[in-house]
């Protein structure tokens, strides 16, 4: 091999890896309708619009390319190279999706949800992960859950009533972290997640035995979804609700086998300070509070006065003061 040829080859390789080479890729990949078509406009406007093709498509040989390896988003996003956000990749690795993919099981990877070239910020309506598209996105694999969610109050609000703040899959399952449904830490965090929109219900729940045991860090006792349902959550006045008059007893009986109709008159979100709504509870609480205050006020006064007098007499007896 002579020297001029070597220099030319090196120069070609160096140049070809520059951004300017992107234009060359479109010579073939810009052909609309082709199997390898890349929408240039979409790519340029995407979050990766300024990144050269071979930053992602590594070690790609000039045409004919030979074996083309799958794009590994982790080369930037796991390492945080060139300022690429890396938390999501780290969370994904430990998610049920990431762990399954790591074992070689078929499981969603980054591209499954984000797509390849047309990646936009999730606030952008063009994004495949924009809020109202989330249920359908997850539903591509989780069809049964999607079917149930769509009919739920949360699904109806988001998809039919366009209430974009209504919870989607991501809000509870956490898009990248997606923990196993049996993970206790996640379940415990979900109670306060429900509480972000339902703060009063969370507070009153925390005052009941159910809520106190949960707050102590145990997930074996009724949590929000054990009574209200999760994907199928519906208002109580909907006959299909787990809490409708038709279903309430069987919902209680899940944990309390043998429960009777009268058992279901339990206030799962009692407020002992609400006289109008819970009069008997209110007066019980009032009586107990007065009993406590009265007893302690009398006996603590009694005790302190006693201690004071007894000490004073002791000191006087010693003749010192």
């Amino acid at each position: 091999m002579n020297l001029p040829l070597l220099i030319t080859t090196i120069a070609f390789l160096l140049l070809s890896s520059h951004a300017s080479a992107k234009e060359d890729c479109y010579d073939c990949h810009g052909q609309q309708g082709g199997r390898t078509y890349v929408n240039k406009d979409a790519l340029v406007q995407s979050v990766h619009g300024k990144i050269a093709c071979d930053k992602c498509h590594l070690n790609i040989a000039p045409y004919p390319h030979g074996t083309v390896s799958k794009v590994n988003c982790g080369i930037c996003h796991f390492l945080g190279r060139d300022g690429a956000p890396k938390e999501q990749a780290a969370e994904y690795k430990l998610s049920v999706h990431g762990l399954a993919a790591g074992k070689g099981t078929m499981a969603p990877t980054c591209q499954t949800c984000h797509g390849g070239h047309a990646i936009y910020r999730s606030a952008d309506p063009r994004s495949s992960t924009s809020r109202e598209k989330i249920p359908a996105l997850c539903g591509r694999c989780h069809a049964a859950e999607l079917g149930v969610y769509e009919k739920s109050i949360h699904g109806t609000l988001l998809l039919k009533n366009n209430v974009s703040s209504a919870p989607t899959c991501f809000d509870c399952h956490m898009e990248h972290r997606i923990p196993s449904a049996s993970e206790a830490k996640w379940k415990l965090s979900l109670v306060s997640k429900c509480g972000t929109c339902h703060p009063e219900e969370m507070d009153t729940y925390h005052k009941t035995y159910h809520g106190k045991v949960t707050r102590l860090g145990y997930t074996t006792i009724a949590m929000c979804w054990d009574c209200h349902g999760s994907h199928d959550i519906l208002p109580q006045n909907d006959p299909a609700s787990t809490l409708s008059s038709k279903n309430l007893l069987s919902t209680c009986a899940k944990c309390h086998p043998g429960a009777t109709e009268s058992f279901t008159k339990f206030y799962a979100h009692a407020e002992e300070t609400n006289r109008a709504k819970y009069p008997v509870l209110y007066y019980t609480f009032l009586f107990m509070t007065l009993l406590l205050i009265g007893t302690f006020a009398f006996f603590l006064t009694h005790t302190f006065l006693w201690a004071y007098r007894a000490l004073k007499e002791r000191i006087q007896k010693k003749g010192g003061m």
Binding site: H256, G258, T260, S262, K265, Y267, T284, F285, L291, L292
Partner: peptide
């Protein structure tokens, strides 16, 4: 024994019982 007592008392008796049990225990 909530299921047993639930046969004879409305479920909110357990709310009353909780308040009494907890406050009387504090006392």
């Amino acid at each position: 024994f909530p299921v047993f007592f639930g046969q004879f008392f409305p479920g909110w008796a357990f709310n009353i019982a909780t308040v009494i049990h907890s406050d009387e225990a504090l006392l």
